[in-house]
């Protein structure tokens, strides 16, 4: 359980140490991304029913750029859905 605001502020602050965690020390690159450069299919914008459409073919809520991910030692190419 975190202690109260007043206790946190009233507690003496020990001096900064070289081993303290800073924001940058927690930062990582999100994933290995290589743009494939596949052209966008503008026909997806047309009013036609596309049968058998797979999720990754839909750019409705993903970046239209195709990216290459490195997952478990294997690569695959997907649209970047930018997980929240």
């Amino acid at each position: 359980m975190l202690i109260s605001t007043s206790v946190l502020l009233l507690s003496a602050v020990s001096p900064t140490m070289a081993t303290d965690i800073t924001p940058v020390s927690l930062a990582t690159r999100p994933h290995i991304v290589t743009l494939v450069g596949a052209p966008y299919d503008w026909n997806l914008q047309r009013m036609s029913i596309v049968s058998g459409q797979k999720l990754a073919d839909s750019t409705a809520n993903c970046n239209t750029a195709t990216i290459e991910t490195n997952s478990g030692g294997k690569t695959d190419q997907v649209h970047d859905c930018g997980f929240d």
């Binding site: 081993t19 303290d20 927690l26 930062a27």
Partner: peptide, 16 residues
Amino acid sequence: RYIFVQSVETDRLSPD
């Protein structure tokens, strides 16, 4: 680079 949600020993967080 991004700071993803992660666990730390919070007394090691810099007060700065």
